[in-house]
Computed example of a mutant assay.
Amino acid sequence: MSHAYRPPLRRSRLTRRGRLALFLGILIATGAVVLVPVLRGGYGPEQPRRLTIPEGWRASQVYAAVDRELKLPPGSAKAAALAVAPALPAEAKGNPEGYLFPATYPVTSKTTPATLLAHMVRTAHEKLATKAVADGGRSHGMTPYQTATMASVIEAEAENRADMGKVARVVHNRLAKSMPLQMDSTINYALNRSTVDTTLSDTRIDSPFNTYERQGLPPTPIDNPGLEAMAAAVAPTPGNWLYFVTVKPGDTRFSATYEEHKKHVAEFNKHRAAHAGPRAG
């Protein structure tokens, strides 16, 4: 018996969207409940932003930078600093100055001031616990907090990293001779300013940070030092210097005698007078 020719039947294909719809229909019909993720092409994990804290910034500057980066009202980070107090040395008495380690930190939409400051404090502890810094501090009879305090002075006083070891030696030599440190940076911290113009009246202010009248290190760090300053604090450059002055950019003079130091100060004053801008009338 003959049969008429019939073309083969074509199987219909479902598109991707059709297959998904059929799958959902089956699940709904059977009473199954699922959570279907929404697929969005081009979207991936959140890329962290970066917040850089430079060496030598004071806590107040760090707080302001955190508030700006996280788009929070001024004072938010300072208030959050209370949360990191338990992680600080007892000597700090809850003040994180010196322990907000300068570095670049990742910031996301989930970052809070407390978590960011805690990250900085953990990093400071890690740097102070490195073998060279920890062993060097112990060899000088210094606690980690004292190392951070001395490093903060070195960070503020040294014009560049190459001079940090010499500045550290001046600090050590003065402490060994029971001489006041006489550091302008500690006066500036007490007066909440940054300047090279320290007057005679400035050196007579009643403050525990007045190292012209009080012997020893300041009671707390005066900024947040980096690892180079910490290393210099515990391994100062050999020398007998007791004084130093930066005569001009890139030219810091170190002296063992006050007579020699006075000559360098005279050169500083001469150079400054020659390069002073015109005064307003």
Rank of each mutant, 00 (worst) to 15 (best):
R138L: 12
A118I: 10
T143S: 13
V121D: 08
P144I: 00
A148F: 03
A124D: 00
E155F: 01
G136K: 02
S139M: 07
A134I: 02
V153W: 00
I154Q: 04
E157I: 04
T123A: 14
L117F: 13
T149L: 07
L117K: 09
A134H: 06
Y145C: 14
A129R: 02
M150T: 12
E159T: 13
A129N: 06
H125Q: 12
T149P: 03
A129E: 02
V121I: 08
I154E: 04
E157F: 05
E159V: 13
E155W: 03
M120L: 11
E126Y: 05
T130S: 03
E159A: 15
A118W: 07
E159K: 08
T147N: 09
D135E: 15
A134Y: 00
I154Y: 05
L117V: 13
Q146L: 06
K127Y: 00
T143W: 09
K127H: 05
H119D: 15
V121A: 09
S152V: 10
R122H: 11
T130N: 02
P144A: 04
H125A: 12
R122G: 06
M142H: 07
L128Y: 03
G141A: 01
A134F: 03
A132K: 14
E157V: 11
Q146P: 01
T130G: 02
L128W: 01
P144G: 04
A151G: 07
Q146D: 02
L128C: 01
E159Y: 10
T123C: 05
K127V: 02
A124G: 05
K131M: 09
R122K: 10
L117I: 14
A129C: 00
P144F: 01
D135I: 01
T130C: 05
Q146S: 04
R138N: 11
E157N: 06
A156W: 00
M150P: 14
A124N: 00
A118M: 15
V121Q: 08
T147Q: 11
K127D: 08
T123D: 14
T149W: 03
S152T: 06
G136C: 09
M142A: 15
K127M: 09
G137C: 06
A129T: 04
A118D: 15
K131E: 14
A156E: 01
V133K: 02
D135P: 10
P144W: 07
G141Q: 03
H119W: 04
T149N: 04
S139H: 07
